[in-house]
């Protein structure tokens, strides 16, 4: 039995809190520094100037060290760098996985900040959702395999739209990382890209995981909201992934649907036919 909730109207509801507060309290919550976050919550800065300054600093302070970690790990693994034994190579891969995880959080928080300051200006380039799905599956393949979760991609349409490639990848990646995260070993996650009978394009991410309670299904699309299962079981995560999914979908004129039962969940992002780029199909089949 599947319950269904439409979350389109929730888009960006409740985005009234100044953005430095969001990022700083998320960072503080990560670091376990709860007193910082509760102090900041009491005095929320408002001015856009201040927002922009702090946004810039957060960017700089996270992105530069992340570059050092990602870049050093890549150079260490490089064959011309030579001579890493299996154990050391696995340690470097662990660094790379951790860095990717951190990178995802930084990208999500950056987007949350841009939404907050009105600085989110998605590109309008031809993007194949099929290609996006393949890339995202690639990013998640090792994590899924390590956990013992199957991961498949089924493409029934190249699904060209006009949109922002990086943001669309981020959107699908958030759905897939969630699906892998909330699916116990032995389960499976599938990504399907198709055109529905009405001509809209759909990206569907289905899992055989723990499911989402009916009372959580609207709430989880708001930023920092997490489901009762995630909270009770200390499943890690900052709670912004689905708010990003929602925001990116609606920026492309689309919406997100979720069905869930105790046997698993299914998220469908539907992008309207109006956004479909027909001409491009011929150029890149």
């Amino acid at each position: 039995m599947f319950y269904s909730v439409e979350s389109g109207m929730l888009a960006l509801a409740g985005l009234s809190v100044a953005w430095p507060w969001i990022v700083l309290s998320a960072v503080a919550a990560f670091a376990g520094g709860m007193w910082v976050s509760s102090r900041l919550a009491r005095r929320r800065p408002r001015q856009d100037d201040l927002d922009a300054t702090i946004a810039g600093r957060i960017d700089h302070e996270f992105r530069t060290p992340l570059s050092v970690i990602i870049g050093s790990a890549e150079l260490l693994c490089d064959d011309t760098g030579g001579g890493l034994d299996d154990e050391r190579r696995r340690l470097v891969e662990a660094i790379q996985r951790a860095a990717r995880r951190l990178h995802r959080v930084v990208e999500d928080l950056t987007l949350v900040g841009q939404l907050q300051t009105g600085g989110f200006a998605p590109k309008r380039e031809p993007v194949s959702l099929a290609q996006v799905a393949d890339e995202v599956a690639e990013w998640n393949r090792v994590d899924a395999a390590t956990k013992g979760v199957g991961l498949t991609v089924e493409v029934r349409d190249p699904a060209w739209i006009r949109g922002d490639p990086a943001r669309l990848r981020q959107m699908v990646d958030n759905l897939v990382t969630n699906a892998v995260k909330f699916t116990p070993p032995g389960g499976s996650v599938s990504i399907v890209v198709r055109r529905d009978p009405g001509g809209s394009l759909e990206v569907e991410v289905t899992d055989t995981g723990v499911g989402i309670r009916p009372e959580d299904r609207h709430r989880i699309f708001r930023r920092f909201e997490r489901g009762s299962h995630a909270v009770a079981n200390h499943v890690p995560g900052p709670g912004v992934g689905l708010s990003v999914v929602e925001a990116v979908a609606s920026a492309h004129g689309g919406r997100v649907r979720v069905d869930s039962s105790p046997a698993g969940s299914r998220f469908v992002v539907q992008l309207p036919a109006a956004a479909v780029e027909n001409q491009v199909d011929e150029v890149h089949p």
Binding site: D59, G119, F120
Partner: peptide, 9 residues
């Protein structure tokens, strides 16, 4: 240009 800034501008 290699930058840690993330705004579209």
């Amino acid at each position: 240009v290699l930058t840690a800034l993330s705004q579209e501008e």
